[in-house]
């Protein structure tokens, strides 16, 4: 009985989170188009629905209805597997992210997290490292030089920056003494913004490194060399059309959201409010349940806004600059941060 209840609850949570995540991806695309439009002094999409709000639905329908072309020279099984792998890995890692208070539902079920596990942070890193295969296989199985170059660039970039990304999170883990995302957030919650890891935990250097590495991890500008249109005609997804192309596109935006969630959890206090104890907890039970979600979404939104802002502002790096930056500056800096944090912790 308990297994059945647990199973049904998990299924429900997975369904809800997947739908919300896909909607989030669709509207992140719209956010990007609108914001980049404003940065470039034009309106962006504005025809479909009020303020262009229905544009993502129309885009989705268009991707579905387009002709799906599979070129003759591709290695078929892997060509079909690659977009599934990319999108799957982008969607799976949200499963360990806690969105809100550990409200205990009927039967001891966490409402706002699919699974609460001790190694939550490592699971996210592990799934990200599996996601590399989606891109690498897409480029190779396309049997196209541009695709292969794009996927090689992308995989090399992902592997290089994964190091800096992982090392930048070690400082926070040292401070908390746990890899459980819920514990990490609760540790920061005491006094609001003052005890967030970025300020109170003295992890601002780590946050800066994480920010840089996250841009590279998600192949976003200014590190978007894998899909540099002027050199590679589109990168690893050159040979993909219709919904398969859309899956890569969705995977990229899904990764953006995941990376934003991790930044929020690790450095910005997760679902807790920046006021901490200064504000009395709301009495209404519904408000009490959904207020944390508001803070969580607001923080992730700020992160996404920053992404688009940077894309609209900075030009693309050159490939050797990218590798130099990752290996010669970010990684040593991350190591120094670990050293500094451990010394500081040992001193106290």
């Amino acid at each position: 009985m308990t297994i059945l209840v647990f199973f049904l609850w998990s299924l429900l949570k997975v369904a809800v989170v997947t739908v919300v995540m896909l909607l989030g991806i669709a509207y992140t695309v719209l956010l990007e188009r609108k914001l980049v439009g404003r940065i470039q002094n034009r309106w962006g999409p504005s025809r479909v629905g009020p303020f262009g709000l229905l544009q993502p639905l129309v885009d989705g329908a268009k991707s579905f209805l387009k002709e799906d072309i599979i070129p003759t020279g591709v290695y078929r099984p892997l060509y079909l597997l690659a977009p599934i792998l990319a999108l799957g890995c982008a969607l799976i890692s949200i499963a360990v992210v806690p969105f809100g208070e550990p409200n205990v539902g009927p039967g001891g079920i966490h409402f706002f997290q699919i699974s609460d596990i001790n190694i939550g942070l490592l699971v996210i890193l592990g799934v990200t490292s599996i996601g590399v295969y989606g891109i690498a296989l897409a480029g190779w199985s396309s049997n196209n030089k541009y695709s292969l170059l794009g996927s090689l660039r992308s995989s090399a970039q992902l592997i290089s920056y994964e190091l800096a990304l992982g090392l930048s999170l070690v400082g926070v883990v040292l401070q908390t003494g746990s890899l459980n995302l819920r514990v990490i957030v609760e540790k920061q919650a005491e006094k609001g913004i003052v005890t967030w890891n970025i300020f109170g935990g003295l992890q601002f250097v780590a946050f800066f490194i994480y920010l840089m590495a996250a841009f590279a991890e998600t192949n976003r500008s200014p590190f978007d060399l894998p899909e540099a249109e002027s050199e590679l005609t589109g990168g690893y997804h050159t040979e993909y059309s219709s919904m398969k192309f859309a899956m890569f596109f969705m995977a990229e935006y899904g990764n953006m959201i995941t990376v934003g969630c991790v930044a929020t959890l690790m450095f910005l206090g997760g679902w807790t409010s920046p006021m901490g104890d200064l504000m009395p907890p709301p009495q209404n039970i519904l408000v009490h349940a959904f207020f944390p979600i508001f803070w969580f979404v607001a923080k992730v939104f700020c992160f996404l806004f920053l992404y688009v802002w940077v894309r609209g502002t900075l030009p693309r790096f050159r490939y050797d600059q990218l590798m130099n930056f990752g290996w010669r500056y970010l990684m040593p800096l991350a190591m120094l941060n670990i050293l500094g944090t451990s010394l500081w912790l040992a001193y106290h």
Binding site: I117, N118, I119, L122, V123, L125, G126, S129, I130, V132, Y133, A136, L137, W140, L148, L152, S155, I159
Partner: peptide, 26 residues
């Protein structure tokens, strides 16, 4: 053995096998 499990995924499936596939592809 949760830590061993995720280390297996990150190190073997994520890092070493990426190198393998890279060599095969290149």
């Amino acid at each position: 053995a949760e830590f061993l499990a995720i280390a297996q995924v990150i190190v073997y499936a994520g890092a070493i096998m990426v190198l393998f596939t890279f060599v095969v592809m290149l």
